[in-house]
Design a protein around this nucleic acid. Structure first.
Lengths: 343, 343
DNA sequence: CGATCATCCCAAAGCGCTTTGGATGCAACG
DNA sequence: CGTTGCATCCAAAGCGCTTTGGGATGATCG
């Protein structure tokens, strides 16, 4: 069923039917009603490709997911972020098109997306400290929004981010207030912009109290359960072991807890943990009311929603002036923290 | 830059240029070379929408992700599966379009995808025991492949699945051989077809040794860390506690381990765990050589690849006769299992 | 040398929609 | 009564590509 035959059946021109369906005023309400009824009856839906070609709008947003051939890790945060963004797209009638690409071909993938014209804009994931994608996209003239920011770049661009500096500053202060002085940071990969910011927040808080950050108490690598475990195990054997851990993900925190317990210590009493919690669907930090870990909490799903909303707004308004949204993490207190043990 | 102007610049007709680019034989190799060179120089890429409209092929595969409003959990396996499938799509020049939809509107979403014509086929995730999607898609005439199977349905369809029955039968036998008799199953949600099959494998193995499955030793719910923990804690307080746990995911296994250790027991000595391991990128079971948990291992990413390959093959060949692929899980021995303790 | 046949190229139609630029009819107006 | 203005509708062009159905051109053959 297409426009032409639907129009014929109604004894109308395609023009009129198209206008009736798309809510243009040049058609009487009587015929509009007739058209709508017929369209529904015939289960008519305009062909996407034809519409796209005619309007020049792809009605789709691109997400490019680079797959590293080295540490082939799929970002665990990814699924939830996508879910949030996808909700918004679906409501607005946009498709979400995902491209999986070896990370050395990422630039080409963006360029292709642009020149083949199959998206109206892109959402950029997991920016690194110096991320070339921003300049590339600027140059391509493809509307985009970053989930996160890029420290080492001058360009201005639209982004949605958590206030990572502040979150980790607060978390560190929280531990300092409990009397902890040897606080370890189990962070994400140091290339990542968010990891850089978290570290800055952590170090700022320490320095503000006159404590020099100790490199032996900082680990920066992929945020897995094993990472947390191994880092905790290793650090607990130091001559001056930490009394608290600050971890960048719930998985790392779980690993750290395991390491702590293997060392015969008790979390929340002997050793404290504060973690960042992205509120992933499949990885809950206890319940909202009774969290297991003390955490800086910020929903990555909500971030997905906001990124998507921001991008759609830019595309539909045509307004390219960069806009930002800074989300604050909530510090929730769980059972993983307590006063520093008297040594 | 479009076909027409490119053709003009070359002094050729659009027809010839199109044919040259698409490898048709009706064009001399000399002009083909000229055309290719010019196209590359102009960075020309045919407009996707126009191509799609002209050919009637969307060159895209749909994935519909239902979001339950109740337990809004995003399948943790999802990201890795997508990554696998996406690799194959990208190589074949297909887009992957993802639709996030409230689960009560899933059927409508498939119908729309079909009538709007923006995909050539769909990949169906996480089938339930009685899943209406198979009949729906059959009826819509939209090519599809299931990741998993549907027990309660007669239709034949294409699928790729792990031999869940066999995997859990083997895992159970492995524990039985170690002398365990009280073996608990911490399974996925019972509606899920894969969970049903795993339970069947588990019960078959028990019955084959004359052991009646004990409902008190079976939990079926969302596979989270908390699930594993809570189930293990609860079961260990039974009058006749289990000596081994069989879990359906690494997260559950991690939770169970925590529960075990909280009860002052040692995994691998006092209590054994065998888990299923989907080989998720961000959730490794130790290393390939030295797994932490004894596990039935099967890569969900590889499953994604095979699903995608199967679907593309069906679409491109036009052959709609259902095809299957059954993957066998490997049983790897880690440090989480040992002989049943003498009571 | 004319007929036949590849080879190489092109004009034009068509994919299904939107949108521009009228046409038509009718009420209102001076 | 002629004109204006409005409300409705339509024909046709166009989006950028593919593909059908030829049309030249030159080589081959009897």
């Amino acid at each position: 069923m297409n426009l032409k035959t639907l129009a014929q059946e109604l004894g109308l021109s395609p023009t009129t039917v198209s206008r009736a369906l798309n809510g243009y005023p040049e058609v009487s309400e009587a015929t509009r009603a007739r058209v709508l009824a017929a369209a529904r009856a015939a289960n008519y839906r305009p062909n996407t490709q034809a519409k796209r070609l005619a309007t020049g709008r792809a009605m789709a947003i691109g997400h490019i997911i680079p797959i590293s051939t080295r540490h082939e890790i799929v970002n665990p945060v990814f699924a939830d972020f996508i879910a949030g963004a996808g909700e918004v797209y679906a409501r607005a009638g946009y498709d979400m098109v995902m491209t999986i690409v070896p990370d050395d071909q990422e630039a080409r993938a963006y360029a292709e997306l642009r020149s083949k014209g199959n998206v109206d804009g892109v959402l950029v994931h997991a920016p690194k400290v110096e991320d070339h994608r921003v300049t590339l996209l600027d140059h391509l003239g493809l509307p985009f929004v970053l989930h996160g920011r890029v420290s080492g770049i001058e360009n201005s661009y639209s982004w949605v981010d958590v206030n990572n500096v502040r979150a980790f500053e607060r978390a560190t202060n929280f531990l300092l207030d409990l009397g902890h002085r040897r606080i370890a940071l189990i962070n994400g990969i140091s290339d990542m912009d968010f990891a850089r910011r978290r570290r800055r927040g952590y170090e700022q808080a320490l320095r503000a109290r006159g404590i020099a950050p100790d490199p032996a108490l900082i680990v920066e690598s992929a945020m897995t359960e094993a990472q947390g475990h191994d880092a905790a195990r290793a650090m607990l054997t130091l001559a001056e072991p930490p009394t608290a851990f600050l971890t960048a993900s719930l998985l790392s925190a779980m690993g750290a807890r395991r390491g702590i317990e293997e060392a015969g210590l008790k979390m929340g009493r002997d050793i404290s943990i504060v973690t960042h919690d992205d509120e992933l669907g499949y990885l809950k930090n206890g319940t909202t009311e009774e969290p297991i870990f003390t955490a800086t909490r910020s929903s990555v799903r909500e971030a997905g929603r906001r990124c998507a909303a921001l991008l759609l707004e830019q595309i539909e308004s045509g307004d390219r002036t960069p806009r930002h949204e800074l989300m604050e993490a909530v510090l929730v207190v769980g059972q993983s923290t307590g006063p520093a043990p008297q040594s």
